[in-house]
C-alpha cells in the first residue's frame, strides 16, 4: 500500500487528526465534546453549544462538521437560499454565533424564519443542526415562538469558564501563535495572578507581546509583573512577595 493511500484512510476516523489535535479537552469543555461525540444520538434535531468568546465553540463545530459532513451556513446564505440549496445533500448544518447575529443584523426576523425552515427540513430528513452562541440560550433574542420553542427543547451544552489546565493551555497556544517562547515559571506566575477568563488571557498575551517588542526583551517574570500591574492594578504586595 502506498503512503498516499494510507494517509487518505486516516480521513475516515471519528475525529480527524487535524481538528482533534488542536483541541484540549478538560473539565471545562468535556461535556461539550462528549455531546459532539455522541452525535447522531442527540435525541433532538438540534444541539446548542454556548460559552464565552474564544472558548473553542467554532473549533468544536468544525470537528463536528468533519464527522457529520455538515455544512457551515453563513447568514447571507441563510437569507438568500432555500434549505435544500444550502444543504446540498448534507444532513447537517452549523449556524455559528447565533445570538450575536440576532443582535446585530437588521434582518433578524428573516433569519429566524429561514432558520426555522432549515430546522424543519433537517428534522424531516433526520439530520441535525448545531447552533453556537455566547449567552445562555434562553437569553438569545429569538422572537419567533416556533423557533424559540424548538431550540429550547434542544440539548444545550455549555463550555464553562476555563479551569487551570485549559487556561494554561490557551495561554501557551496564544504565545505560540505569536511565536513567543515563554518559560514555564513565567506562565505559572501569570496564572496565579491573572483574572481567570478566556478574554483576560487573550488581553494579557497581547499586552506582553507588545511590551516585549517595545523593550526588545524576553518575557520574564519582572516584565510579566509590570504588565500585569498595568492591566489590573496588581499591587506591590504580591509583587514583593513573589520576588523572593
Amino acid at each position: 500500500m502506498s503512503v498516499a493511500e494510507r494517509q487518505l484512510a486516516l480521513d475516515l476516523p471519528h475525529r480527524p487528526a487535524l481538528e482533534r489535535e488542536d483541541f484540549l479537552v478538560t473539565t471545562a469543555n468535556a461535556m461539550a465534546v462528549a455531546w459532539i461525540d455522541q452525535w447522531p444520538q442527540w435525541g433532538q434535531p438540534a444541539l446548542l453549544l454556548y460559552g464565552p468568546a474564544s472558548s473553542g465553540k467554532t473549533h468544536l463545530a468544525s470537528v463536528w462538521r468533519r464527522v457529520s459532513g455538515a455544512v457551515m451556513v453563513q447568514p447571507e446564505a441563510l437569507l438568500e437560499r432555500d434549505p435544500p440549496e444550502l444543504l446540498v445533500g448534507a444532513a447537517g448544518a452549523v449556524v455559528d454565533d447565533l445570538d450575536r447575529l440576532l443582535d446585530t443584523v437588521a434582518e433578524a426576523s428573516e433569519i429566524e424564519r429561514a432558520l426555522f425552515h432549515l430546522y424543519n427540513v433537517l428534522r424531516e430528513q433526520g439530520g441535525h443542526l448545531l447552533v453556537t452562541g455566547c449567552a445562555l440560550p434562553k437569553q438569545w433574542a429569538l422572537t419567533l415562538p416556533d423557533l424559540r420553542s424548538r431550540l429550547a427543547a434542544a440539548p444545550a451544552v455549555e463550555i464553562g469558564p476555563p479551569d487551570d489546565r485549559l487556561l494554561e493551555a490557551v495561554m501557551v497556544k496564544l504565545f505560540a501563535d505569536r511565536q513567543l517562547r515563554v518559560a514555564p515559571e513565567v506562565i505559572r506566575f501569570l496564572l496565579a495572578r491573572m483574572e481567570r477568563s478566556f478574554a483576560a488571557v487573550r488581553a494579557l498575551v497581547a499586552a506582553l507581546d507588545r511590551a516585549s517588542l517595545a523593550e526588545r526583551r524576553d518575557i520574564t517574570i519582572p516584565l510579566a509583573r509590570r504588565v500585569l500591574d498595568d492591566i489590573q492594578g496588581y499591587t506591590e504586595n504580591e509583587a514583593h512577595e513573589e520576588g523572593s
Binding site: P40, G69, V88, G89, A91, G92
Partner: peptide, 16 residues
C-alpha cells in the same frame, strides 16, 4: 460534493 458519504446513513440512524 461533501466529503463524508456516510451522511446519508444518519437519516436512518436517528430512527426518527
Amino acid at each position: 460534493p461533501q466529503p463524508q458519504p456516510e451522511v446519508e446513513v444518519t437519516a436512518s440512524d436517528s430512527g426518527l
